[in-house]
Design a protein around this nucleic acid. Structure first.
Length: 439
RNA sequence: GGGGAGAUUCCAGAGUGGCCAAAUGGGACGGACUGUAAAUCCGUUGUCGUAAGACUUCGAAGGUUCGAAUCCUUCUCUCCCCA
């Protein structure tokens, strides 16, 4: 199956410039790229969708280029942003680009075949481009009228946009031109929000080529030479943003989002969203997905689709071992385990399960305190910030210790300690704290 | 330049002298149900406090009053209409 067809049935095709399908079919391998700006120390699941574009691109025989936006990250993309961004300092950007480059290397084959992936950083060519050169080589070809017609800029004309961010599309456009010239890159891909930036690139290439070939722009037939393609921005059926949990972004970095939380994120996908997400984030083929959906429909409570999705994505991002631990932790935290059974877990496993969960150490004699004090002042206000809040939650039935509901009148002494020194405190359904007693 | 409307608790939006920590809806959080889903239902939602209550809120600063989100003055900002 060719690249475009693959994206189409997966619902990953938003927009593309004409002629692309034929070009991809008749040229093999075609070189295509996606840019990632180092604006954070890690990529998140939103980026994963565009990474999958590159994965499919490579699997269908083409040659993916991963562009690290070392230079563009210094400028700030106004797309989808309602206010000017904070500029990042160079040290931060350097750290970030190192981190996201390491992450990106895991998803593509950079080692073998004529279509092995390449990684490049636009800082290497943009750093030496002088202002004058830029204005003459790039700025001259694109009108301000054209630039402010772009959605990303138009939205900001009222509230304000700096010249720096306004220029962003030109830099990105120049990247495309540069890659076309020096690496014969023909296609730029990205999320739907990047359409404007990408087409600035195709437009710039068209105009520059016209000049280089001594033609008037309208006589050209260069539109057949470079292409743009975007994938829809993912949304959730309830209208909220995809890729966020109550605790914020879902990151690929295990230090920011533990593999357990990552696994849970996918596992908690609603029935409504799961079919779309399986198509985007796994490489399962059509038959396999249809089979999974049928299985799921037959026994929805088993959440076949969610489990398959969570397994596939967690393994791709964090590896099999981390996935297995996440499953094990989930089984313990959400399974119907009576206290005795939890008590049988050995200490090493217990600590592994609660990795990434806040751990609070208190003196053993502090157990003499009442439950409200225990949940607030004794645990240094880390479980509840005040006695009132602890009490409110207790009254609402939202607190468990060792998986047993507690009330204001519960006696701490009645709880058997796990491994003779741990208590599992649960606030609501999904917030855990491991309290360790010090002798 | 002229005329008008407004600024309320996370958001939207009632309230026009005491019954206002402030209706209602949304969101958030918790519970029940369930499948760690969705929908539904119930509870909580300024802070602290076992409670009684205390303290801080209704754009900002002053003032009137026993008492102000509500009345007066000034200021700041937002929106609309006409020119």
């Amino acid at each position: 199956m060719n690249f475009i067809e693959e994206l189409r049935w997966r619902g990953m095709l938003q927009d593309y410039t004409p002629g692309i399908e034929e070009f991809l079919n008749t040229h093999q391998p075609v070189r295509g790229y996606i840019g990632f700006d180092p604006t954070a120390t890690s990529l998140h699941v939103g980026n994963l969708a565009t990474i999958m574009l590159l994965v499919h691109f490579q699997r269908s025989g083409h040659k993916p280029y991963v562009l690290i936006g070392g230079a563009t990250g210094m400028i700030g993309d106004p797309s989808g942003k309602s206010v000017e961004r904070q500029m990042l300092d160079k040290a931060t950007i350097e750290r970030n680009q190192q981190a996201i480059a390491d992450q990106l290397r895991r998803f593509l084959d950079f080692d073998s075949g004529e279509n092995k992936a390449e990684m490049i950083n636009n800082y290497t060519w943009l750093k030496d481009l002088s202002l004058l050169e830029f204005l003459r080589q790039v700025g001259k070809h694109i009108t301000v009228n054209y630039m402010i017609a772009k959605e990303s800029v138009k939205k900001r004309l009222e509230s304000g946009i700096s010249f720096t961010e306004f220029s962003y599309q030109l830099l990105q456009g120049y990247d495309f031109y540069y890659l076309f010239k020096h690496h014969n890159v023909r296609l730029q891909m990205g999320g739907a929000d990047q359409w404007g930036n990408i087409t600035t690139g195709t437009e710039l290439i068209r105009r520059k080529l016209a000049v280089e070939r001594g033609l008037a722009p309208l006589e050209d037939n260069f539109s057949e030479e470079v292409f743009a393609l975007t994938t829809p921005l993912l949304t959730k059926s309830d209208g909220t943003k995809f890729g966020k949990s109550e605790s914020g972004n879902i990151w690929l970095d295990p230090r920011l989002t533990s593999p357990y939380q990552f696994y849970q994120f996918w596992l908690n996908t609603t029935d409504q969203d799961a079919p779309r997400l399986v198509r985007v984030f796994t490489l399962f083929d059509k038959e396999k997905i249809q089979a999974l959906e049928a299985e799921h429909a037959a026994a929805p409570h088993l959440r076949i689709l969610q489990k398959a999705l969570a397994e596939d994505v967690t393994i791709r991002v964090h590896g099999r071992e981390a996935y297995q631990k996440a499953v094990q932790a989930s089984a313990i935290l959400f399974g119907n385990h009576p206290t005795e059974e939890i008590n049988r877990i050995d200490e090493a496993t217990l600590l592994a399960v609660f990795e990434g969960v806040p751990q609070i150490a208190i003196p053993r004699q502090a157990l003499q305190n009442g439950i409200v004090d225990f949940l607030s002042i004794v645990t240094d206000y880390r479980i509840f910030p005040s006695k009132s809040e602890a009490r409110k939650m207790l009254q609402g039935g939202g607190v468990s210790i060792n998986k047993m509901k507690v009330t204001e009148t519960s006696q701490l002494n009645n709880f058997s300690l796990l491994q003779n020194r741990y208590l599992i405190v649960q606030k609501g359904k999904k917030n855990y704290y491991l309290v360790r007693l010090l002798d």
